[in-house]
């Protein structure tokens, strides 16, 4: 008999294996945000030398977000060929299919996060290890939920790849911008701040910033945990239902 954890590890290691056999693609994608960081950071207002402190957690969140949104797009092809169907017939627990696939997208991003941090240290970036680890766990939960939603979207759009991409990109960018990931929201108009307050990602980003700074026992951390847990729960619930209902 298997457990949810064993099932998740089966799915996760299946997904990760082609990457490990061909690591060049990961290495390439890891360098990308470094370039981004190098080009973007000089543009930020840096009154008190805090630009990196504010921006690095944002970049990490952004890479994870884009990565976990790949969960569905990688699935599209497998739905067409029949390998997803083959997985669905196995007794693998349905949440394991969602979590395993999302984790495969996120885990390489954590390696990337470590790389970003190391590269930024000489430039005065300060970070707190326990805080960062807690931050990444929160981020992982959020991304599992988002990955599950992306999975659901792939199931719903089936053979219409354009539908998947249109819907996903239409939702992803506002989600990102309305969370103050790349630009601060505080100085925006009231309606923008109201939208940001309703965006669960805002709480996750805020928690990441304070955790990376070493402020662990704060209300931001709690807010991040609640937002991430809620998104994870909703994503898994919706995803499992979609798998059950899908024709």
């Amino acid at each position: 008999m298997t457990t949810l954890i064993a099932d998740t590890s089966t799915v996760f290691s299946r997904e990760l294996r082609p990457l490990l056999r061909d690591p060049f693609t990961i290495i390439f994608s890891m360098v990308q945000p470094l370039v981004f960081l190098a080009l973007f950071t000089p543009l930020l207002p840096d009154d008190d030398g805090n630009a990196l402190q504010w921006f690095v957690p944002g970049i990490i969140v952004m890479s994870c977000l884009f990565a976990c949104s790949m969960t569905g797009s990688n699935l599209l092809f497998e739905i067409q060929t029949g390998s997803h169907e083959r997985m669905l017939v196995t007794p693998l627990r349905r949440p394991a299919l969602l979590i395993g696939r999302a984790l495969k997208e996120i885990v390489p991003m954590f390696a990337q996060a470590a790389l970003i941090v190391v590269v930024c240290l000489p430039f005065g970036f300060r970070f707190n290890l326990p805080g960062a680890v807690i931050g990444l766990v929160i981020l992982a939960a959020f991304c599992i939920g988002l990955g599950a939603l992306s999975y659901t979207l792939a199931l719903a759009s089936k053979n219409q790849e354009w539908l998947f991409w249109t819907v996903q990109q239409t939702l992803l960018f506002p989600l990102l911008l309305l969370a103050g990931v790349l630009l601060p929201i505080e100085n925006g108009p009231g309606w923008l701040r109201a939208l940001a307050a309703g965006n669960p990602l805002s709480y996750v980003v805020e928690a990441e910033r304070s955790l990376f700074n070493g402020d662990i026992w704060t209300s931001s951390t709690l807010g991040g945990i609640i937002a991430a847990a809620a998104v994870a729960a909703i994503g898994l619930l919706v995803g499992v239902r979609a798998m059950r209902r899908s024709d």
């Binding site: 067409q80 390998s83 083959r86 017939v89």
Partner: peptide, 8 residues
Amino acid sequence: GQGNGAGH
């Protein structure tokens, strides 16, 4: 199934 079960 009628399709191919192995991931490409």
